[in-house]
């Protein structure tokens, strides 16, 4: 079934708005960081300026790189934009219904990660290669948490459709409130790791790996990639907010409703990124080989959510 015009318009609006706001999100993180460092730091709009500047620069490819390396920023950006049209963020229902399935979302994120890692290996740089293998390892480690917590939510709502889950939570139609809260917590942990922030920014660790898979990128590719990573951070937070904190999202497609939903999302995102900003600047990077210990805790909470669901607490 093809989506009708209003839904297409909403999908286009949501994807464009998130894309436009992404550098603001990363810029806000930089402002927070500077505040935590007691330094003046860059302005809120610095990442827009960075992207414009990089777009004008020359592109340099490593001699050993192939087409994967060159195509990766485009591919990742495209995949993320597809996700942006499917996740229910401004509204309770997904803008494009077929894209709003949580199994599909999970694998679209995995696809983006796959290309990011592949390009690291393709670049021929040993730092990028190690960063790529870390990226995949982190993916393998957080996926169980995300999957399990989402499946608990799906079981609670009786559907893997993200719109149905969001609606069920928004209306409080849950068989087990305890399970929903725990699943939300586990999912929040998974989302935090997905953000790629300290202490879990292993793949891009500046001091350790010189930014991992990003090492060899330059010019417009780097701009696109930075933009895409900022969009990814916005999207995963939107994913979390859309599913587990859908309050304020629009139940219909009216223009007022959608704008109010967008405003509500902006406020929620502001609070979440402020919390993330404090957390990520108050800790050291976790040693990469200790990461599984942390991710097992996430899996544990998600499993507990499942148990709560079974006993119906």
């Amino acid at each position: 079934m093809l989506p009708d015009l209003p839904h297409l318009a909403l999908a286009g609006f949501q994807a464009t708005a998130l894309l436009a706001a992404a550098p603001l999100v990363s810029g806000f993180a930089r402002v927070m960081r500077a505040k935590m460092h007691n330094r003046q730091g860059p302005g809120l709009l610095q990442d827009y300026r960075d992207i414009v500047k990089l777009m004008q620069r020359q592109e340099v490819w490593p001699p050993d790189s192939g087409w994967v390396f060159k195509a990766m920023p485009m591919l990742v950006m495209a995949v993320l934009l597809v996700i942006a049209t499917g996740t229910p963020i401004f509204t309770l229902a997904p803008p494009i219904h077929v894209m709003g399935d949580l199994v599909l979302s999970i694998y679209l994120y995995a696809l983006a990660r796959f290309f990011l890692s592949l390009s690291g290996i393709d670049s021929g740089s040993s730092f990028a290669g190690i960063g790529a293998s870390r990226e995949l390892t982190v993916g393998v480690l957080v996926e169980p948490t995300m999957l399990l917590s989402l499946f608990v939510a799906a079981l609670l709502a009786g559907s893997t459709d993200e719109g149905a889950i969001a609606t069920a939570i928004a209306n409080g139609h849950m068989q087990s409130a305890g399970a929903a809260v725990l699943a939300g917590l586990a999912f929040a942990f998974g989302v935090y790791v997905e953000l790629g922030k300290l202490p879990y920014d292993m793949a891009e660790a500046e001091q350790e790996l010189q930014e991992g898979p990003l090492t060899e990128y330059s010019g417009p590719s780097l701009a696109l990639l930075k933009w895409a990573l900022a969009l990814k951070q916005t999207l995963v937070v939107g994913w979390f907010v859309g599913l587990f904190l859908p309050f304020g999202a629009s139940a219909d497609l009216s223009i007022d409703g959608v704008f109010n939903g967008a405003l509500a999302f902006a406020l929620k995102a502001l609070v979440i990124f402020a919390i993330v900003g404090v957390l990520s600047n108050a800790v050291a990077r976790v040693r990469f080989r200790f990461t599984p210990r942390h991710s097992w805790a996430g899996v544990g909470v998600a499993s507990l959510a499942f148990v709560f669901y079974l006993v119906g607490v």
Binding site: V283, A284, R285
Partner: peptide, 16 residues
């Protein structure tokens, strides 16, 4: 030492 373990907030404070 703070900087190298990714704890840049500590780095800036020690330098202050």
């Amino acid at each position: 030492a703070c900087h190298f373990v990714g704890f840049d907030s500590g780095f800036m404070q020690f330098f202050r």
